[in-house]
Simulated scan of single mutants.
Amino acid sequence: MNTKKHPDDTTAAAVPQLDGQLCFALYSTSLAMSKIYRKLLRGLGLTYSQYLVMMVLWEKNELTVSEVGERLFLDSATLTPLLKRMEQAELLTRTRAASDERQVIITLTPQGDALRHEAAKLPPAILQATKCTLDEVVGMKQQLDGLRAGLMASAN
């Protein structure tokens, strides 16, 4: 046991250690995952954030900006510049809703929809990169979903 005294007279063991922090494990794992995705997405011409938007639209096309934002836990101020760049790349269109001009409808273009087939190659490559079994990955995802829900409930 480390009994070295800290300047404020607490034991060194009481000072948080980086490798013992859940937040750092999540952060560093996210960085590693992003690095793998960045490499795989280069061939699709997408960033990771753009890929997330595309997955939402591949699941259900023609959503409002706020619906996409809710799904990705992003606010409009973060999402709007991303969507503008994706529109310029001709992956999607943004149009005002006829019934309520405050709402912007996001729709895939044929080019954006066509990326779906190439993107189908990513999950097996990611699974292989994790060096985990499918059951292990599914279990981790379920635990992380629960963790996120608990944290979000605590934040409110």
Rank of each mutant, 00 (worst) to 15 (best):
E67W: 00
R102S: 11
Q50F: 01
K141T: 14
E118A: 15
I106P: 04
K141G: 07
K60R: 15
K5Y: 01
M140K: 11
Q103P: 00
G45T: 06
L18V: 12
Q50N: 10
V15W: 02
V53K: 08
K35Y: 00
E101N: 12
G69V: 08
K141E: 06
L115E: 04
K4D: 10
L91V: 04
F24K: 11
E59Y: 05
V15K: 03
L22Q: 09
R96V: 05
T10N: 01
L46D: 07
G20N: 14
S30K: 02
P124C: 07
L91Y: 05
C132S: 14
P7G: 03
L74T: 04
S28Y: 00
D75I: 13
M86P: 06
T11I: 02
T107G: 08
G150E: 08
G45D: 11
G146A: 13
L63D: 05
L57A: 06
T133I: 08
P123T: 10
A32G: 06
M54H: 03
M152A: 13
Y37D: 01
K131H: 09
A120S: 11
R71F: 02
K84E: 10
S49K: 12
L108Q: 10
Q17A: 13
L108M: 12
D75H: 05
T93K: 10
G69R: 02
L108P: 06
D135W: 02
T80N: 10
S28Q: 12
Y27G: 03
A12Q: 13
E136K: 09
P123A: 15
K39C: 10
S34V: 01
V68W: 00
A12C: 08
Q103W: 01
K60H: 13
D75L: 08
L18D: 09
R102D: 06
I106G: 09
R96Q: 13
E136F: 00
G139W: 01
R38F: 00
Q88T: 15
L147W: 07
L91C: 06
L91K: 03
R96N: 07
T47K: 07
L134T: 10
M140P: 01
E136C: 12
N156Y: 05
M54Y: 01
L147P: 02
C23D: 07
V56I: 09
T3L: 14
L18R: 14
M33R: 13
D113I: 08
E118Y: 00
E118T: 02
T29L: 08
A12V: 07
A89K: 14
A32Y: 01
D135E: 15
G112D: 11
D9R: 11
R116T: 04
I105C: 11
A149V: 08
Q50L: 08
D8N: 15
E70L: 05
A25I: 10
L26W: 06
L63W: 00
